[in-house]
Protein backbone atom coordinates (compact mmCIF):
# COMPACT_ATOMS: atom_id res chain seq x y z
CA UNK A 1 0.00 0.00 0.00
CA UNK A 2 2.86 2.33 0.64
CA UNK A 3 4.76 1.98 -2.56
CA UNK A 4 1.92 3.16 -4.76
CA UNK A 5 1.26 6.14 -2.55
CA UNK A 6 4.53 7.80 -3.30
CA UNK A 7 5.56 6.42 -6.65
CA UNK A 8 3.84 9.28 -8.43
CA UNK A 9 6.51 11.72 -7.29
CA UNK A 10 9.85 11.75 -8.99
CA UNK A 11 12.65 10.96 -6.59
CA UNK A 12 15.07 13.77 -5.83
CA UNK A 13 17.84 12.62 -3.60
CA UNK A 14 19.84 15.83 -3.75
CA UNK A 15 19.51 17.12 -0.20
CA UNK A 16 18.12 20.56 -0.75
CA UNK A 17 17.24 21.47 -4.26
CA UNK A 18 16.54 25.20 -4.30
CA UNK A 19 12.95 24.50 -5.22
CA UNK A 20 12.31 22.70 -1.93
CA UNK A 21 8.79 23.10 -0.63
CA UNK A 22 9.92 23.30 2.99
CA UNK A 23 13.49 23.74 4.05
CA UNK A 24 15.16 23.85 7.45
CA UNK A 25 18.74 24.99 7.63
CA UNK A 26 20.69 24.54 10.87
CA UNK A 27 17.64 25.20 13.03
CA UNK A 28 18.18 25.42 16.78
CA UNK A 29 15.11 25.66 18.97
CA UNK A 30 13.54 24.68 22.25
CA UNK A 31 12.14 26.06 25.47
CA UNK A 32 14.13 28.85 27.04
CA UNK A 33 17.68 27.73 27.69
CA UNK A 34 16.89 24.11 26.96
CA UNK A 35 17.49 23.44 23.29
CA UNK A 36 15.57 20.38 22.17
CA UNK A 37 16.85 20.63 18.61
CA UNK A 38 20.42 21.56 17.91
CA UNK A 39 20.92 22.41 14.30
CA UNK A 40 18.50 20.48 12.16
CA UNK A 41 18.58 20.69 8.37
CA UNK A 42 15.97 18.98 6.30
CA UNK A 43 13.82 19.55 3.27
CA UNK A 44 10.47 18.38 1.99
CA UNK A 45 9.66 18.48 -1.71
CA UNK A 46 6.27 19.27 -3.13
CA UNK A 47 3.97 16.26 -3.04
CA UNK A 48 6.13 14.15 -0.78
CA UNK A 49 5.36 12.36 2.43
CA UNK A 50 8.41 12.66 4.65
CA UNK A 51 8.70 10.89 7.97
CA UNK A 52 10.58 12.12 11.02
CA UNK A 53 11.28 9.23 13.31
CA UNK A 54 13.13 9.00 16.56
CA UNK A 55 12.81 8.19 20.21
CA UNK A 56 10.96 10.21 22.82
CA UNK A 57 12.72 13.51 23.35
CA UNK A 58 14.67 13.34 20.11
CA UNK A 59 13.19 16.67 19.11
CA UNK A 60 10.53 15.57 16.63
CA UNK A 61 7.65 17.56 18.08
CA UNK A 62 9.89 20.53 18.74
CA UNK A 63 10.80 20.54 15.07
CA UNK A 64 7.16 20.66 14.03
CA UNK A 65 6.33 23.32 16.64
CA UNK A 66 9.19 25.41 15.35
CA UNK A 67 8.06 25.09 11.74
CA UNK A 68 4.51 26.09 12.58
CA UNK A 69 5.69 29.10 14.57
CA UNK A 70 4.77 28.01 18.10
CA UNK A 71 8.45 28.15 18.92
CA UNK A 72 10.88 30.65 17.57
CA UNK A 73 14.23 29.20 16.49
CA UNK A 74 17.25 30.76 18.16
CA UNK A 75 19.39 30.03 15.11
CA UNK A 76 18.96 28.76 11.60
CA UNK A 77 16.53 29.41 8.80
CA UNK A 78 13.19 27.96 7.80
CA UNK A 79 11.68 28.67 4.44
CA UNK A 80 8.45 27.59 2.86
CA UNK A 81 7.86 27.90 -0.86
CA UNK A 82 10.88 30.14 -1.04
CA UNK A 83 9.81 32.50 1.75
CA UNK A 84 11.48 32.80 5.13
CA UNK A 85 9.00 31.85 7.86
CA UNK A 86 11.15 31.54 10.95
CA UNK A 87 10.15 34.99 12.19
CA UNK A 88 6.51 34.76 11.18
CA UNK A 89 3.81 34.41 13.84
CA UNK A 90 2.04 31.06 14.08
CA UNK A 91 -1.31 32.43 12.99
CA UNK A 92 0.22 33.93 9.86
CA UNK A 93 2.04 30.73 8.96
CA UNK A 94 -1.34 28.97 8.75
CA UNK A 95 -2.37 31.60 6.27
CA UNK A 96 0.71 30.87 4.18
CA UNK A 97 -0.37 27.26 3.73
CA UNK A 98 1.08 25.18 6.55
CA UNK A 99 -1.28 23.37 8.83
CA UNK A 100 -0.19 21.57 11.97
CA UNK A 101 -2.15 18.80 13.68
CA UNK A 102 -0.33 18.81 17.01
CA UNK A 103 0.67 15.97 19.26
CA UNK A 104 -1.85 14.64 21.71
CA UNK A 105 -4.60 15.68 19.30
CA UNK A 106 -5.21 19.02 21.05
CA UNK A 107 -8.75 19.42 19.91
CA UNK A 108 -10.98 21.92 21.66
CA UNK A 109 -12.91 19.74 24.08
CA UNK A 110 -15.50 22.33 24.99
CA UNK A 111 -16.27 23.21 21.39
CA UNK A 112 -18.48 21.07 19.20
CA UNK A 113 -17.00 18.95 16.45
CA UNK A 114 -18.44 21.35 13.91
CA UNK A 115 -16.96 24.36 15.68
CA UNK A 116 -13.61 22.62 15.79
CA UNK A 117 -13.76 21.98 12.07
CA UNK A 118 -14.80 25.52 11.25
CA UNK A 119 -11.93 26.84 13.37
CA UNK A 120 -9.64 24.93 11.06
CA UNK A 121 -10.83 27.26 8.31
CA UNK A 122 -10.63 30.30 10.58
CA UNK A 123 -8.34 32.34 8.36
CA UNK A 124 -10.30 31.65 5.19
CA UNK A 125 -13.19 33.74 4.00
CA UNK A 126 -14.72 32.06 0.96
CA UNK A 127 -17.80 30.60 2.53
CA UNK A 128 -18.87 28.31 -0.27
CA UNK A 129 -15.43 26.74 -0.45
CA UNK A 130 -15.38 26.19 3.27
CA UNK A 131 -18.70 24.39 3.11
CA UNK A 132 -17.32 22.27 0.27
CA UNK A 133 -14.25 21.34 2.28
CA UNK A 134 -16.41 20.59 5.28
CA UNK A 135 -18.34 18.15 3.17
CA UNK A 136 -15.09 16.69 1.87
CA UNK A 137 -13.54 16.05 5.31
CA UNK A 138 -16.79 14.64 6.65
CA UNK A 139 -16.77 12.23 3.74
CA UNK A 140 -13.18 11.38 4.50
CA UNK A 141 -14.09 10.74 8.14
CA UNK A 142 -17.67 9.46 8.23
CA UNK A 143 -17.38 8.86 11.98
CA UNK A 144 -17.19 12.60 12.51
CA UNK A 145 -20.32 13.27 10.53
CA UNK A 146 -22.33 11.33 13.09
CA UNK A 147 -20.94 13.50 15.84
CA UNK A 148 -20.84 17.04 14.49
CA UNK A 149 -23.03 18.39 17.29
CA UNK A 150 -21.14 16.71 20.09
CA UNK A 151 -18.47 18.45 22.17
CA UNK A 152 -14.97 17.51 21.10
CA UNK A 153 -14.22 16.29 24.60
CA UNK A 154 -16.82 13.53 24.35
CA UNK A 155 -15.13 11.83 21.39
CA UNK A 156 -13.06 8.69 21.70
CA UNK A 157 -9.31 8.85 21.19
CA UNK A 158 -9.49 7.70 17.59
CA UNK A 159 -12.27 10.11 16.77
CA UNK A 160 -10.32 12.95 18.31
CA UNK A 161 -7.37 12.06 16.13
CA UNK A 162 -9.60 12.08 13.07
CA UNK A 163 -10.97 15.43 14.15
CA UNK A 164 -7.49 16.85 14.57
CA UNK A 165 -6.49 15.77 11.06
CA UNK A 166 -9.78 16.86 9.55
CA UNK A 167 -9.49 20.21 11.24
CA UNK A 168 -5.99 20.70 9.93
CA UNK A 169 -7.27 19.92 6.41
CA UNK A 170 -9.94 22.58 6.74
CA UNK A 171 -7.19 25.14 6.38
CA UNK A 172 -6.58 23.76 2.88
CA UNK A 173 -2.89 23.44 3.57
CA UNK A 174 -0.27 22.83 0.95
CA UNK A 175 1.87 21.33 3.69
CA UNK A 176 0.42 19.28 6.50
CA UNK A 177 2.42 18.65 9.67
CA UNK A 178 1.18 15.55 11.43
CA UNK A 179 2.45 14.83 14.92
CA UNK A 180 2.04 11.24 16.16
CA UNK A 181 -1.26 10.48 14.47
CA UNK A 182 -1.10 6.88 15.69
CA UNK A 183 -0.47 7.62 19.34
CA UNK A 184 -2.64 5.63 21.68
CA UNK A 185 -4.79 4.12 18.95
CA UNK A 186 -5.71 0.51 18.32
CA UNK A 187 -3.96 -1.21 15.38
CA UNK A 188 -7.16 -1.14 13.32
CA UNK A 189 -7.54 2.58 13.83
CA UNK A 190 -3.89 3.19 13.05
CA UNK A 191 -4.46 1.41 9.76
CA UNK A 192 -7.44 3.62 9.00
CA UNK A 193 -5.65 6.80 9.90
CA UNK A 194 -2.67 5.99 7.74
CA UNK A 195 -4.87 5.00 4.82
CA UNK A 196 -6.42 8.43 5.09
CA UNK A 197 -3.03 10.08 5.25
CA UNK A 198 -2.21 8.47 1.93
CA UNK A 199 -5.47 9.66 0.46
CA UNK A 200 -4.78 13.19 1.62
CA UNK A 201 -1.36 13.09 0.06
CA UNK A 202 -2.74 11.78 -3.21
CA UNK A 203 -5.16 14.65 -3.29
CA UNK A 204 -2.15 16.94 -3.46
CA UNK A 205 -1.11 17.82 0.09
CA UNK A 206 2.53 17.51 1.04
CA UNK A 207 2.98 15.85 4.41
CA UNK A 208 5.67 15.96 7.06
CA UNK A 209 4.91 13.15 9.45
CA UNK A 210 6.29 12.65 12.93
CA UNK A 211 5.92 9.12 14.25
CA UNK A 212 7.16 6.80 16.92
CA UNK A 213 5.55 3.99 15.04
CA UNK A 214 8.44 3.86 12.60
CA UNK A 215 7.20 0.78 10.76
CA UNK A 216 3.98 2.47 9.83
CA UNK A 217 5.57 5.78 9.04
CA UNK A 218 8.14 4.25 6.72
CA UNK A 219 5.42 2.40 4.83
CA UNK A 220 3.64 5.63 4.07
CA UNK A 221 6.60 7.94 3.56
CA UNK A 222 8.85 8.20 0.60
CA UNK A 223 11.79 9.53 2.52
CA UNK A 224 12.63 9.80 6.16
CA UNK A 225 14.91 11.40 8.71
CA UNK A 226 16.02 9.77 11.92
CA UNK A 227 16.42 12.26 14.75
CA UNK A 228 18.61 11.56 17.73
CA UNK A 229 19.00 13.99 20.63
CA UNK A 230 18.06 16.98 18.57
CA UNK A 231 20.05 16.30 15.44
CA UNK A 232 19.56 14.41 12.20
CA UNK A 233 21.29 11.05 12.58
CA UNK A 234 20.28 9.58 9.27
CA UNK A 235 18.54 10.67 6.11
CA UNK A 236 17.49 8.27 3.39
CA UNK A 237 14.64 6.92 1.34
CA UNK A 238 12.06 4.98 3.28
CA UNK A 239 13.21 1.72 1.77
CA UNK A 240 16.80 2.35 2.74
CA UNK A 241 15.79 3.33 6.24
CA UNK A 242 13.75 0.19 6.63
CA UNK A 243 16.80 -1.76 5.66
CA UNK A 244 19.30 0.12 7.78
CA UNK A 245 20.66 -1.51 10.92
CA UNK A 246 20.12 1.52 13.07
CA UNK A 247 16.43 1.79 12.25
CA UNK A 248 15.81 -1.91 12.40
CA UNK A 249 17.37 -2.31 15.80
CA UNK A 250 16.26 0.84 17.45
CA UNK A 251 12.91 1.69 15.95
CA UNK A 252 11.52 -1.42 14.35
CA UNK A 253 12.41 -3.60 17.30
CA UNK A 254 14.10 -6.22 15.18
CA UNK A 255 16.99 -8.13 16.58
Amino acid sequence: MSGEATSAVAPSASAGAPSAHLRLDGVVSGYGQIKAIKGISLHVETGEVVALIGANGAGKSTTLRTISGLLRPSAGEISFEGKRIDRVAAHDIVRMGISHAPEGRAIFGRLSVLENLRLGAYQRNARAEIEQDLERVLTLFPRLRERVKQDGGTLSGGEQQMLAIARALMARPRLLLLDEPSMGLSPVLVETIFRTVIEINRAGTTILLVEQNAAMALQVARRGYVLESGAVALEASAAELRASDLVRKTYLGEA
Binding site: H91, A106, F108, L111, R118, L119
Partner: peptide, 24 residues
Protein backbone atom coordinates in the same frame (compact mmCIF):
# COMPACT_ATOMS: atom_id res chain seq x y z
CA UNK B 1 -19.85 34.63 15.97
CA UNK B 2 -16.43 33.75 14.66
CA UNK B 3 -14.81 36.09 17.19
CA UNK B 4 -16.77 34.43 19.96
CA UNK B 5 -15.61 30.98 18.96
CA UNK B 6 -12.06 32.33 18.74
CA UNK B 7 -12.33 33.60 22.32
CA UNK B 8 -13.49 30.20 23.48
CA UNK B 9 -10.71 28.50 21.57
CA UNK B 10 -8.04 30.77 23.03
CA UNK B 11 -9.50 30.20 26.48
CA UNK B 12 -9.14 26.49 26.06
CA UNK B 13 -5.74 26.24 24.39
CA UNK B 14 -3.78 29.25 23.29
CA UNK B 15 -1.18 27.41 21.22
CA UNK B 16 -3.61 25.27 19.30
CA UNK B 17 -5.77 28.32 18.70
CA UNK B 18 -2.85 30.04 17.01
CA UNK B 19 -2.38 26.95 14.83
CA UNK B 20 -5.91 27.59 13.57
CA UNK B 21 -4.77 30.99 12.36
CA UNK B 22 -6.26 32.84 15.33
CA UNK B 23 -4.30 35.91 16.31
CA UNK B 24 -4.09 35.28 20.04
Amino acid sequence: TKAGVAIRAVAEDRDTASLMGINV
